[in-house]
Design a protein around this nucleic acid. Structure first.
Lengths: 398, 398
DNA sequence: CGCGCTATTGTGACCGGTCACACGATCTCT
DNA sequence: AGAGATCGTGTGACCGGTCACAATAGCGCG
């Protein structure tokens, strides 16, 4: 049991060396797991290390050109759910790997700012993870010099744009398709879309929505452009959605936008899901607790963040586990905010879409589609939340 | 205009020195703003620095014992609103000050884990900011060796416990008092309290609530202990609040708990705010968009985070602005989730519409902490959100 | 004119690691 | 038995800053 000893007086590699009766270089070899150290000396050194409670000094190591052991995350935001959850996942992964983690936000997409942010981010760490879900993030991604080890979380790329790039993403297109099909399957004549700002000109999420509508031979309404927050979607909805009785289903780019739309609908006196169905994206921790609980496409950003770090690690460490770390998949979580459209002629069996709407194919539960009516209300202890059916909307793997 | 030059080949202090025709030490003096450099040479050096696009290497500086220019935030969480917002504020402040920012989460309060986390956090940075809102955070705070520069965000301390300590906090006690009084002022017979986990045994927030009740000569119900998430409060509420028609007002330790309670009430068939009033804490960005919109005590964590960093800076830099940086104040934001209690004798203005609470000041303001009735309802375009009256609940300054 | 003092600048060691390379001991093979 | 290869280890320089201290210059003054 190592004596706490004096804090502050940090022990160096040479202290360990003399304690173990070897040279400082041998200690260095041991802590770097060099194969060319005899097992017996290795043990002696390890003992000394333990006895002295030695920890290599990151600054010195970085300075001397040792292996990179810290990452900084470059992002345009730290509070929004997707970003924060990604950060959480990355933090956990870095901690597990013994890496230090830095954070730097890049505010605008202005070339000067971006350049500056990128340089400042590179400097203390060496390696970068860029969260590139918006314009600023994308700009940062592009501004990273090619010789800096980096991985990135990006929007679904189109085509083979991402070939060979150290990027990770959710299959937005597929997820949006499935969510749209789910709504169509409920009997809606079409589905409106409220979009988050896309970093690319052709958001795959929007494309997925559109293609689902087209495949169903249904009219494609003009998508609404919103920001990231409920304020923006609420406003957009008030302009274009709220007064039109023909809109009965709205797919939203994230849960916050969904909340904004719900709010706007509510204020306009339209009930959810009876008059209009809403489906979100992300599955915020609170989504299950809204009233009505939000049907949404879950995206496990924390897991994706971990995958992203794993990717970075494989870049850093040539001989690291090179195997394709599968990414998390998006899945549609069916709750209460989407249901059959109001009064449009009875349907035999709400089956028209490719997606089997949960088990609730039966009558036509006006209020909760996939609700295999459990007890009228989750009476007591166990599953308190309004979580309900969950249906994989698939994701991508490699 | 500095030529981009080759990335990677970082320029060092000696490069600058030879470029400027001085010694490396002089360059060091210039970048450290030493007063003993002649103005003319300073200019020459600065020019060279600009020309070469020189940036001091943080690792080298740290290694050589230079001034601390990075902080790491030690927290038990990065996703929860309060923590994430604090982090956001700290990030902004550090960026403005040219500091690098690290993040490390300490998972449990186990002595071993905490010790380890603290050491790992100290090592790369030198300075620490601890977010100590729960047990793990507090444990970390206590585990920080006294010689490490540190500031902390804490729960409201009691008495002069915080005297001389580099801590910042909101005046929870006052805020809870005011919120409770607001509810009493609406006519409720008493107010129930659902608590977040407190890091201290005597949460000042709870004390504020209790003292308000006691001062009003009203019965003090047993507080409910919940966790941080809506799941926990929902569960707690189902056990103890939902079935008792006498509970008409609930104050919640944060907005997520408020959501959980709202959900539980909803499932039990009790309308908000008609049957029961709910008030939260924090003012999450989504609070204004819930249905009904949440009345809550706003706490600007980002601003408090900045104040905390300012405090740290003043510790690091003896001659820094020593003036008492005022902290942000908590304020009660009145929206829709709280209103007069149900049916206790007809009220002049008996409302039943679920969405219009703010107007109900007429009746008999029991101790009405100045609720002025605003416009009936946020009609259309402009202020989309259901924001309404906002009433300072006061905070603390120094 | 020489001395002491201060303002300014330069010199070299050092922080705690790594890298490149040299060195001694074994082992192998002819 | 000696040359070479391999293994295990030690030596010293170096990363890019800072620190402590020396050195030089300029000044006021007796």
């Amino acid at each position: 049991m190592p004596v706490p000893s004096d804090r502050l007086a940090s022990v160096s590699i040479r202290d360990v060396a003399s304690e173990a009766g070897v040279s400082h270089q041998t200690v260095s070899r041991v802590i770097n797991e060099s194969p060319s150290v005899k097992e017996s000396t290795r043990q002696v050194v390890l003992d000394a290390i333990a006895r002295l409670d030695f920890r290599p000094n990151r600054a010195a190591r970085a300075l001397a050109g040792g292996p990179v052991q810290s990452v900084t995350v470059l992002t345009s935001n730290t509070r929004q759910y997707g970003f924060a959850a990604a950060l959480e996942g990355i933090e956990e992964a870095t901690r597990a790997a013994g890496f230090a983690l830095g954070v730097r936000v890049v505010e605008s997409g202005t070339p000067g700012d971006v350049r500056d942010a990128v340089e400042r981010a590179i400097e203390p760490a060496g390696a970068l993870i860029v969260i590139a879900y918006d314009r600023a993030g994308i700009a940062a991604l592009r501004a990273v010099p090619p010789d800096v080890p980096m991985a990135a979380m990006v929007e679904t790329p189109s085509g083979d744009e991402a070939a060979g790039k150290p990027w990770v993403w959710f299959d937005d297109r597929k997820a949006a398709r499935d969510a749209t099909n789910y709504l169509l399957g409920l009997g809606h004549k079409t589905v409106h879309y409220v979009s988050i700002p896309s970093s690319t000109s052709t958001s795959q999420r929007m494309l997925g929505w559109r293609s689902a509508l087209e495949d169903a031979g249904v009219s494609v309404p003009k998508p609404l452009q919103a920001g990231w927050d409920p304020q923006s979607s609420s406003q957009a909805a008030q302009h274009r959605l709220t007064r039109d009785r023909k809109v009965t289903a709205v797919l939203c780019g994230n849960d916050d936008l969904a909340i904004g739309v719900m709010r706007a609908m509510h204020q306009a006196g339209r009930a959810i899901p009876d008059d209009v169905s809403i489906v979100g994206f992300d599955d915020t921790p609170l989504a299950a607790f809204y009233i009505p609980a939000l049907t949404t496409v879950r995206q496990d950003f924390a897991a994706l963040g971990k995958a992203c770090f794993a990717k970075l690690l494989s870049l850093l460490d040539a001989n690291a586990s090179q195997d394709a770390h599968p990414w998390p998949q998006a899945e549609l979580i069916v709750r209460e905010s989407a249901g059959p459209p109001p009064l449009p002629r009875q349907r035999a069996n709400g089956q028209s879409g490719s997606v089997r709407a949960g088990t609730g194919a039966g009558g036509r539960p006006r209020r909760a589609p996939g609700t295999r009516s459990p007890a009228p209300a989750p009476a007591a202890s166990s599953g308190v939340g309004p979580e309900q059916t969950r249906k994989t909307a698939k994701g991508v793997s490699r």
